[in-house]
Design a binder for these strands. Structure first.
Lengths: 240, 240
DNA sequence: GTATGTGAAACTGTTCACAGCC
DNA sequence: GGCTGTGAACAGTTTCACATAC
């Protein structure tokens, strides 16, 4: 599931997610999961090019900038639509807009972060969110010593007020940056409060009902995967 | 020092898997990437069970604890070897050891973190590393105001001394927790210093030579993928 | 001529169903 | 009886090759 990249080594790690059952032939055409993940990479590369004043790009060079093969890129783009010109390439801004639209990034998403430890603070201050259409609208902690502190331009809310603040701020995504032991409890409350998109950094398997989209980032898992490959690489009589 | 977990298995007597008859995949064949990622989940679940005193487990319940199907779990374990008993299940400790061995977690890995901002500090203090066989041996920053500060039980080194400190500490994995703009430069130096396993949190496509293992964790990408699914769910898709 | 867009082929990963062993 | 381990069927993904359009 995770590895996407034709280059020597895979990138990007997340675990299998319950995969909401897509209703059969419902509204629109759906984009394969592997393609969705890569579209975000193309979007980033395109936006970098846009900032550099590049106006047109070929599948070959966009693919290289994104770390994928050009055939993969063209196939992925074909799920979004036909926005290139044969014999010429793609107009950077035009393609960027259409990918953004396909990904649902045409309006801002409001993100609440639960956990104001180092990780939560790092996320709250990470400029990359704001610039990509994600507005951090709240940050919570359970520790009364932390509640009320300023983090970036936000004030830390008491997690006891989770439901109230989520509702008031209109948050529609939540990032869990808290200890494994309390993650499930908070997750349940978040779901009950009506948020259906959750990104968890807690190293536990969280249970969510159908219809809730949970993604998980796990740093220990990533290191373990590296360890596996490193160990494999040490085949000959090389010193460790 | 740190073994796989707080649990009492100073793994060691595991790697001499009788490399005789496994024409399959047990002793030293390669495990599919998707399976490797999930094996880390099984390992975590098993170690939790071990801490709770559970001695045996069925594929069904281990699968549930890990969030996968039991057939997937059994297929994954078949890449590691045949360590279950038909009609009975798996012995928790025994299976845990063999998975750890297959993943190359029988010895400690030494991790250096580059970047002592919020994210770097969060990683350095994250207990989950130590308890899983990853020893954080150094943390670097370029900011002279930060160099020399204490983070956990480490002192922040100057990134100017990267090569020296990596060598002295024997670090064999590096985590990049720094701004996109400087990531490639530091990455090149890390590779030149002989480290072949890199986990990057920088939101850029890093270029590494063959033989270097690079994994990437990207929070903006994760949120964008959530946005895609959330948008689909919201769309007034007609019920068939 | 050049580069996109797309069927078809090749490959990887998942699920099914049951044989084999307890 | 119950549960593991695995070949076979199925589903998803990547690569290939070329028709198509500029």
């Amino acid at each position: 599931m995770t590895s996407l990249d034709s280059s020597p080594h895979a990138v990007q790690g997340v675990q299998p997610v319950p995969a909401g059952q897509e209703g059969k032939a419902a509204g629109g055409k759906q984009i394969p999961p592997a393609a969705v993940a890569r579209l975000t990479l193309y979007l980033r590369a395109l936006n970098t090019m846009l900032a550099e004043g590049v106006e047109r790009v070929s599948s070959e060079s966009l693919a290289e900038a994104s770390g994928v093969s050009s055939s993969t890129l063209r196939k992925d783009l074909s799920h979004v639509g036909s926005y290139g010109t044969r014999g010429v390439g793609y107009e950077v801004q035009y393609l960027s807009r259409h990918i953004a639209a396909a990904l649902g990034l045409t309006h801002d998403w409001k993100v609440a972060i639960v956990g104001a430890g180092n990780l939560g603070k790092a996320l709250a201050r990470y400029g990359g969110f704001e610039s990509r259409g994600f507005d951090v609208v709240a940050i919570f902690d359970a520790d009364q010593m932390v509640v009320g502190n300023e983090v970036g331009w936000l004030r830390v809310s008491d997690v006891a007020d989770l439901e109230t603040v989520l509702h008031r701020t209109g948050a529609n995504m939540v990032v869990l940056a808290l200890p494994a032991a309390v993650a499930q409890g908070v997750c349940d409350r978040v779901v009950a409060a009506g948020v259906h998109s959750i990104l968890s950094f807690a190293p536990v398997m969280l249970q969510v009902p159908d219809g809730v989209n949970l993604r998980k980032v796990d740093m220990a898992t990533e290191l373990q995967i590296l360890a596996y490959h490193a160990q494999r690489a040490q085949t000959p009589g090389q010193t460790a």
